[in-house]
Amino acid sequence: MTRISVSKNSGTARSAHTDEYLIKDEPYYEPIGQEIAVFEAAFHQQLPVLLKGPTGCGKTRFMQHMAWRLKRPLITVSCHDDLTATDLVGRYLITANETVWVDGPMARAVRTNAMLYLDEIVEARKDTTVVIHPLADDRRVLPIEKTGELLTASPEFSLAISYNPGYQSVLKDLKQSTRQRFVAIEFNYPAAALERKIVRRETGVDEAMAERLVKFAGMTRNLKGSGLDEGASTRLLVHAGKLMSTGIDPRTACRTAVASALTDDPEMIAAVNELSASLF
């Protein structure tokens, strides 16, 4: 029997096993403000959530943590500009004998009462974004045109999207009609003490190293808008810390994991390297 897969990303073609999306061990997440309480409240009130903030500040980790905390399977879709509504909702597959409908991540999330997380939603095309609208307002339904089905979300289903308002591009802004459906939680880089704690926990470097790494991040954040679009994120610090904890020299770790990851501009790289060199 010939089986033809038509999906672009293998995730959409797989059948739904709730279990594989359940998170068993507590993902480490260090709360920055009231975000856990707000998310829980939104979940119980069945309100969709918008996570706003620069890249690498813990949004994905937060979702993993919340999914674990609320004991829901987590289905994550990283959005990109080729993503179509069909990719999200579902499509027909054709086998030798029949055509089979296969749910996309959205339909699967609704059927399995999962937590659906659409990461970097603005990367998706605008006409794709609108398919989430009926799920995101108080109807909480997902019409599947091709099968004629109308899925109604149960109270356990929840929807979250993330968005980086730092993008300067006018195109990469979130439409009002979309954003106004969501409870927005703002994320930012954690305060220094917290960020040190996160870096230590995630990488195993000692307090003195964590302190310097966080200070270094602060220096790069001073350069935001003067040649850098963003300063070093917590994620980049974690990368540098991980390299350091395996014995890579700190200056080299910062150069490879941070400076070169931030920019290609040779003068900026030189300046950022001088900054890390001034600390280690």
Partner: peptide, 11 residues
């Protein structure tokens, strides 16, 4: 320019 960026990064 490197020096300008450097001192701006410092504080």
């Amino acid at each position: 320019h490197i020096l300008e960026l450097f001192v701006q990064g410092l504080a």
